[in-house]
């Protein structure tokens, strides 16, 4: 908590961004996001779009896992649902982009609700395993239906907005980043409402929450639905971004990636989703840079993929054991340090 900010009303206290410093920072961040595409080259734009898509999906998973305490290993499958929805709508009916993205979210949400139904009977880890089952069932459906293009998947035309084809990373940036920012604002605001607070109550102790009058099934399903809605929209963006989707585009390891992202970033924190997804997306690229700098780097590249896997796993373990609140907490600590300096925090 920041000191030196006096609140005079509950509304002010509950505000999303509560201090002037924060407003300044937000303005800087917004300016940076606006200027970035004009300064960066194609590679960095590509990475920025990828990071934004991953942030959107991680934010969704964070609602379910970080805030409601239900582990899901099905995030990739829900993204797949969204991606296929977008592709099929565009290829069959040529419907506009905004509608497609919305439909992607809704279809994924329905999928999420179906998978969430067993939460009526089973809890916690059993549920995580149902989501693994969902991943494989979704893969089977994608691979064996005609209208999903079988194992070779679907190829799309670029999205067309106001007569422009969104076919370069530069143009896609203006679609993907604003949508992601909107979704993040939505997620952050969610936890100022009754629904969001109910989620947190369920996470902290579901039986107590029920005693408090929170309908468990309803809210758990809602959490599942919201989380998969996010995944679906992210999947839709994924489809517009890569324009080729196959059943193999959404493997179980991708779901694990998102779980790792929120663990590393910080569960139960929107900032955590951002930091985690950005960090984990950049890890392979950073590793490449490190390997290039090492002496004899060329011979070491053979180890790049396994090292990446080891680091992925190790990050999950290390953060869970030593810093369960993730990068977001480290960030907060650093901020506090500067804030209170020279006094001890």
């Amino acid at each position: 908590m920041r000191i030196g900010t006096l609140k005079e009303s509950y509304v002010a206290d509950a505000a999303l961004f509560d201090s002037r410093t924060q407003h300044v920072w937000l303005a800087i961040a917004a300016a940076a996001l606006l200027l970035f595409p004009f300064m960066a080259n194609d590679y960095w734009l590509y990475m920025a779009c990828l990071v934004a898509i991953n942030i959107a999906s991680s934010a969704g998973l964070n609602i379910l896992t970080g805030y409601t305490g239900l582990v899901s290993l099905g995030q990739a499958a829900f993204m797949g649902l969204g991606a296929y929805t977008v592709a099929i709508l565009q290829l069959r009916w040529g419907t506009p982009l905004a509608l497609n993205l919305l439909a992607a979210g809704v279809v994924a949400m329905l999928g999420g609700l179906i998978v969430g139904v067993p939460s009526l009977r089973v809890k916690g880890l059993y549920l995580a395993i149902v989501t693994i089952a969902a991943t494989f069932i979704a893969h089977f459906l994608f691979a064996n239906f005609d209208f999903t293009g079988g194992t070779s998947g679907l190829s799309m035309r670029p999205a067309r907005v106001f007569g422009t084809d969104l076919d370069t990373s530069f143009r896609l940036y203006w679609l993907i980043v604003p949508v992601t920012v909107l979704m993040l604002l939505g997620a952050a605001n969610l936890f100022r409402t009754r629904i969001g607070r109910a989620f947190i109550a369920i996470r902290d102790r579901d039986i107590s929450a029920e005693v408090l009058g929170i309908a468990l099934l309803k809210y758990k399903l809602l959490s599942f639905g919201l989380s998969s809605f996010y995944a679906g929209v992210a999947g839709g963006l994924f489809a517009y971004f890569f324009r080729v989707i196959t059943p193999e585009s959404f493997p179980l390891s991708m779901s694990i990636f998102f779980l790792a992202a929120i663990i590393v970033g910080g569960m139960g924190s929107t900032l955590g989703s951002i930091l985690g997804a950005a960090f984990m997306t950049m890890v392979p690229e950073l590793l490449k840079l490190v390997f290039d700098l090492l002496p004899g780097g060329a011979d070491l590249t053979v180890f790049l993929a396994p090292v990446r896997l080891v680091i992925f796993g190790a990050l999950i373990i290390v953060f869970l054991v030593f810093e369960p609140l993730g990068l977001a907490e480290m960030w907060r600590r650093t901020r506090r340090f500067f804030h209170l300096w020279p006094f001890k925090n």
């Binding site: 582990v71 880890l125 995580a128 694990i256 779980l259 790792a260 663990i263 180890f303 993929a305 396994p306 090292v307 990446r308 896997l309 080891v310 680091i311 992925f312 796993g313 190790a314 990050l315 999950i316 373990i317 869970l320 054991v321």
Partner: peptide, 17 residues
């Protein structure tokens, strides 16, 4: 549970290494 997911990834990486 999540730690064991990380463990799986570490083991696969070590084997490939």
């Amino acid at each position: 549970f999540m730690v064991t997911i990380g463990l799986g990834s570490v083991l696969v990486g070590l084997v490939e290494m």
